[in-house]
Computed example of a mutant assay.
Amino acid sequence: MTEAELYSLYKGVYVPTHLHPPESLRYCEEFTFRPDDILITTYPKSSTTWMQEVVPLIVSEGDLTPVLTVPNWDRVPWLEEHRAILLNLEQRASPRVFATHFHHHMMNESYFKIKPRVLYLMRNPKDVFTSSYYYYGMASYLVKPGTQDEFMEKFLDGKITFGSWFDHVKGWINDLKGSVEKIAKFLGKSLSPDVTEKITEHCVFKNMKQNKMSSLSLVPEEYMDQKKSEFLRKGKKNHVTQLKGENKKEKPDLIYSLSYNA
């Protein structure tokens, strides 16, 4: 079966229609977070199941009962999946623990207003690719992967469920404005929204590159020959080493991560 038959396009990315019917996505969009909620956030096949085991055990202080008696999809439910509607999550005692595969920009208004606690788990993309390839081959609600080379092209282009691994990681890890807010809080500084926005805008890569005081363009050529390579270049990776072959795609750089707590 094809993408058109098995997937829905939601906020710019494919989601499996069987697991994420319209009423489930609507429920997720209207869901109200609490400040002490714990949200496990991952790109698919990034060891989510492992975190769905670890976090409840930490919350229960080592009591094995929850993980031995409750399926992980109910113990740590996916907010965007059809099961969430049936679980009376609004009545659960705090701290509630949830999971999501959503990109940062896909989160609802309540998330950005309440700012629950987030655990973002990132896995090596080569391992994600391999695990995804075999998973797509056995899951009836996903488009069959074809050959590894064919699936690699889809993986790199983000034409699989939940889109691009690169965009997913960049969105959650490289939240510059959120990082400015967290750093300011850690340093004991209370910044107004206008000041936070000003700092964020100034520190965007392309703007920093134009600042001679920061680009090291004032360093004498005998130490740094920036005619050969600028110190601040593009802020992007120019290639990704493939599992097979030497195909290259330009993808966002991931080196500017500051925290896993988004």
Rank of each mutant, 00 (worst) to 15 (best):
A262V: 10
T69M: 09
T2L: 15
K234D: 14
R96C: 07
S164K: 11
Q91R: 13
F129D: 04
K237R: 06
L142Q: 10
L64M: 11
E30S: 01
D167I: 05
T196Q: 07
E3V: 03
V118S: 04
Y7G: 01
D63H: 04
I255P: 00
T42Y: 10
I85W: 13
L57V: 06
T48M: 15
E90W: 09
E197Q: 04
C203Q: 05
H18W: 13
V204L: 14
H105C: 00
F166L: 02
R233V: 11
K234Y: 13
L121F: 12
Y14A: 03
L187D: 08
G188N: 07
T42I: 14
Y133G: 02
Y7P: 00
E5L: 10
Y134A: 09
N247K: 12
S214G: 04
F31I: 04
N238Q: 14
L258D: 08
D74G: 02
T100G: 05
K251M: 15
E3N: 10
K236I: 15
R75G: 02
Q210F: 05
I40Y: 08
S132T: 14
L216K: 02
K189H: 08
S60T: 10
E230F: 12
G188M: 12
I199R: 01
E53M: 07
E30R: 00
N72Y: 10
S217W: 09
V55D: 12
